[in-house]
Design a protein around this nucleic acid. Sequence first.
DNA 1: GCAAATTTGTTCGTATGTATT
DNA 2: CAATACATACGAACAAATTTG
Lengths: 269, 269
Amino acid sequence: MAEPMYQRIADDLRGQIESGALKRGSQLPTELELREKYEASRNTVRDAIRRLINLGLVETRPGQGTFVYSKIDPFVTTLSADRATGLGGGEGATYLSEVDAAHKKAKTSEPRVELQRAAPEIAARLRVPEGTQVISRHQERSIDDTPWSLQTSFYPKDFVKRGADRLLDAEDITEGTVKYLEATLDLKQVGYRDWITARAPDATETDFFKLPPDGRVAVFEIFRTAFDQNGTPMRVTVTVFPIDRNQFIVNVGDVPSPQYETSDGRAAS
Amino acid sequence: MAEPMYQRIADDLRGQIESGALKRGSQLPTELELREKYEASRNTVRDAIRRLINLGLVETRPGQGTFVYSKIDPFVTTLSADRATGLGGGEGATYLSEVDAAHKKAKTSEPRVELQRAAPEIAARLRVPEGTQVISRHQERSIDDTPWSLQTSFYPKDFVKRGADRLLDAEDITEGTVKYLEATLDLKQVGYRDWITARAPDATETDFFKLPPDGRVAVFEIFRTAFDQNGTPMRVTVTVFPIDRNQFIVNVGDVPSPQYETSDGRAAS
DNA sequence: GCAAATTTGTTCGTATGTATT
DNA sequence: CAATACATACGAACAAATTTG
């Protein structure tokens, strides 16, 4: 009895799913049927199913049954710069045009603007002392009414005093903050660094993204530090994306511009 | 009774952890103590703890107890090109020098070389018909004896006939396959595209990375398609990294080269 | 529209096994 | 070896969601 029974049941079902014997979207036997088939108690069968849920292989629907999981059609964000605009992917106008290209409808909430004391990971990236006041601009973004990402940008509070007072307005800066800061403060964004991590969602994120409350779906957290012409950080943007519906592309060097393939290898339409 | 009891217990403990009342590495009350404190059965308490495990907040050790999770010091891979070499991060020599810079010892296994029929997602990226034979070179990589990544590169079988026969040798090509292919086939790698995804690990990955078998730790899967001077894909490299010990950096434009911050915001040593 | 049947979700109790101290 | 703490497994009862008749 090297392997516990619930694990052997899970492995057996897993094999059936990965071999294709159980197809995507199809229903698994009910707990009662599995209990008879494997001669185990209902709780043991449920332990096996829980394992499959954690592996992202199945989902359960109360009153209906257990079904092989069907993957969501992912949204793809390009992190490297657009040659034409020099803007990074996933921000402002670039975000909207990428979405449009995929025939989807994006919606961005009005920004929630706050003055905050910089948390350690923000302070270090902006190179200001921990606890310094910073401007925080937070937006929720959805595509086709599916919540897609949460984004918060941090700017030195200083920028307002120096003339960029629209940073404190709780409305979209349609031409983009990059252009706005160049026009008002003569700060050119000459580059940025993206720091890509993944972690479990917190309570707010679970709620906004409508993720299962058990935390089995992690989130990407991308820290973008933008630098001005003096090599000084002028902005830190933190964006959170659920990993079950998001993928990212980075282009380096000369790369053919059209994307000839989709994420799962099928030819693009 | 809107919320089930196990969830209220989990939320209460979660609050204590996130507020700092329970510090990293410290021990939670035992199941028996929690059972008395919350006046619930042991199974209900265990359901609450399972929730915390899935959220990556605690870990249990049989015979010892339940402990607040201490994060692993992550390894950081730069995906954008090194200015000097033009090589991408995470490959060949670049991988070793990055590791060295962090005062760690890397170990790469001898490649396992196979001729395979291209799976759909590989075929589409290499732009060859599905099922075409391709050369597969697979390596396991560890840092300080911790398994860090699994990497498989795919090349058109064609390359061997045209003279790059060392692609079939099961030994490291120390100068790197990029240089080797340029020398033998006059194929210059002028750029690449990285496609970043995350998913649950399969059985092989769970085993190699020594991940918990319940699948709560996902893996990054990065598809790198490298292009030659004609804009034709010359290589597809798939690398898998556990998300609990890996982070990535992408530099775009002019970015100050030293990294002034670490992943969690503390000043670098 | 409603009641019954089906299916998963929550909670309890109990017993035994395994790992660590 | 004994005590402690988590892991596995069984049984039972009721609740909640969904489908069916």
